[in-house]
Each structure stands twice: as structure tokens, then as C-alpha cells.
Design a protein around this nucleic acid. Structure first.
Length: 114
DNA sequence: CGATTGACGTACG
DNA sequence: TCGTACGCCAATC
């Protein structure tokens, strides 16, 4: 049983799990933290596979640069992602997180290596 | 094995 | 300010 995912994917999951409850992050921020500032698409793709990862990966806390729930369609139910965010105290208007900048959790800052 | 797609982001016109 | 083009790398067709 060799590792099925690239180290990049694994690292993405790890960072996403570090996102505090009630906080959100973005694909680009994570990709950037991992050194692939242009690999934002890979982060999104990793999230696609995150559904079968253990432990649970709070992919609903990961949004795009716009604070928009771009991946809400991948949660089974369209409202599942929004519901999860609201359950954590995050207000979601339409498909966009309210006060996104204040709730934004940037790994390059929070996990910054001095 | 080659072409296309994708939960994004930045650059350019 | 808005729309289009490109890059990134893995998975799917």
C-alpha cells in the first residue's frame, strides 16, 4: 500500500484541517503557502478528493479569492456547504461569505515561519 | 498515450 | 471596470 496522493495533496489536507472553526481560507492562500502560488487549481482538485480523506477535511471552510462558495456543488446537497458555514457562525449571503476578509485565515500569516 | 477538464488566480487588453 | 487568455498539475476521457 503505497501512498496514493502526492505530498502536495497531503499538505493541503493538513493545512485545511488547521483552519479554526468559524474561520475560512482560500485556495490561492493555501497553494501559496505550499509554494505553488499558481497551483490554486490543484488545491481545489485536492478538495475534490478530500471527501474520502480521514480525518474529515473541512473543505467547506475553503473558498475562492472572492469568498464565494465555488465548490458548494460538490457537497452533495447544494445548501450543505452554506449550512455548515452558518453552523459555525459564518454568515453566507447568496453564494458569498459575509465579512469574508475578517474571517479569512491565511496560513502564510498564521503559520508563518519567522 | 494525447487531449480535455477542473472546488483558482494573475496578467493583459 | 470588465472580459479574455494563460499557467499550474493531476485526473479523466
Amino acid at each position: 500500500m503505497a501512498k496514493m496522493q502526492s505530498d502536495f495533496f497531503r499538505d493541503v489536507y493538513e493545512v485545511v484541517r488547521l483552519i479554526p472553526q468559524g474561520r475560512v481560507s482560500s485556495y490561492g492562500a493555501i497553494a501559496r503557502y505550499l509554494g505553488s502560488s499558481r497551483g490554486s487549481r490543484m488545491v481545489g482538485y485536492a478538495m475534490n478528493a478530500a471527501h474520502h480523506q480521514i480525518p474529515y477535511v473541512p473543505a467547506h471552510r475553503v473558498l475562492n479569492r472572492n469568498g464565494m462558495l465555488t465548490g458548494k456543488h460538490h457537497f452533495g446537497d447544494t445548501n450543505a456547504m452554506q449550512k455548515l458555514l452558518e453552523m459555525e457562525g459564518i454568515q453566507v449571503e447568496g453564494d458569498v461569505v459575509v465579512n469574508f476578509e475578517s474571517l479569512f485565515w491565511d496560513p502564510t500569516i498564521e503559520l508563518k515561519i519567522d
